[in-house]
């Protein structure tokens, strides 16, 4: 193949830097040397309508593909509750802080189911949507964020049943119920932070796909879902809080069942862990974002 004549240095005839002088126009500049900036976050906000569309798509598709559709939102925690009640409530006779065991377990299974579903879907979000990733640009953070946001619908359905169960058992929440949204926010932040990490890692190492289900299962037992955190010795509880979901579930039970004061130290540690996970997860994600399309 003969080469083309005069492959001139195209750069020479232009000024050295790219730049559009503007009078308040909407100009975007991309430089190879750009560092990772948190400014991307502001851009992601501009795309919140698209986030809504992605959530809407996921929900729509699930309803079209499954026979039971939204019923799974309730069935999943409900079936787990039945199993836990028999195995841990009856057979092992675990203490449930004076609350009927099924209700005790269900109150933890609702946030747990939300968390584990959101994390596993976020982890595979980039890899599953490879076509989108390589063909069109939008802030990639929306991809793991969509299942984390969309899971809230299932959560709401399952939570409504939780309130019905509480009425059935005649257990009224105390004033702590006002704090419940904070604990939910903690679960959302934890799922998002871990989702960022796993989604980005999954692009590079497909092993993540196999590790996630196993880790979530292990984490379920390291979280006071089937048992009460009062089983954990007082001085170990802050360490226990390194698992963000431990703090979330401790908070859920406390605010729902009007129990005596929760282990605030544990919740504080969970909060700190979650902030750390969210911040580091987002930064890692932002750093890897620009090479996703090349690596996937």
């Amino acid at each position: 193949m003969k080469s083309l004549d005069a492959p001139h240095d195209s750069r020479a005839q232009y000024s050295h830097t790219a730049g559009l002088q503007t009078a308040g126009d909407d100009v975007t500049t991309v430089r190879a040397t750009d560092g990772v900036t948190v400014a991307v976050l502001g851009e992601a906000l501009k795309y919140r309508e698209l986030l809504g569309f992605l959530v809407w798509r996921d929900i729509k598709i699930r309803y079209k593909q499954t026979a039971l559709g939204g019923a799974w939102a309730i069935l999943q925690p409900l079936l787990s509750m039945a199993i836990f009640s028999v195995v841990f409530g009856r057979l092992a006779g675990l203490d449930s802080d004076g609350v009927p065991y099924p209700l005790f377990a269900y109150a933890a299974l609702v946030p747990w189911t939300y968390f584990s579903t959101a994390v596993s879907q976020a982890a595979s979000s980039l890899v599953d949507q490879e076509r989108l990733l390589t063909k069109v640009y939008f802030p990639r953070a929306l991809m793991p964020a969509a299942p984390v946001a969309g899971g809230l619908l299932d959560f709401a359905v399952a939570f409504a049943l939780l309130l019905l169960m509480q009425a059935f058992y005649g257990i009224t929440p105390g004033w702590g119920i006002v704090a419940l949204p904070c604990f939910l926010a903690l679960a959302v932040a934890a799922a998002l932070g871990i989702g960022f990490w796993l989604a980005a890692l999954n692009v590079e190492y497909r092993d993540v796909r196999y590790v996630v289900p196993f880790c979530l299962q292990a984490l379920l037992f390291a979280t006071p879902v089937a048992y009460s955190s009062s089983l954990v010795p007082e001085r170990w509880r802050p360490l226990f809080g390194l698992n963000p979901m431990a703090g979330v579930i401790e908070g859920f039970r406390w605010s729902l069942f009007d129990l005596p004061g929760p282990s605030w130290a544990m919740i504080a540690v969970s909060l700190a862990t979650t902030i750390g996970l969210l911040g580091s997860g987002y930064l890692y994600f932002a750093r890897m974002e620009r090479t996703f399309a090349d690596r996937i």
């Binding site: 830097t17 790219a18 730049g19 559009l20 100009v27 975007t28 500049t29 991309v30 430089r31 190879a32 040397t33 750009d34 990733l133 390589t134 063909k135 069109v136 640009y137 620009r290 090479t291 399309a293 090349d294």
Partner: peptide, 10 residues
């Protein structure tokens, strides 16, 4: 979709 290795554009 992908980031340049060198240069810049606006």
């Amino acid at each position: 979709i992908t980031h340049p290795t060198t240069g810049e554009f606006s």
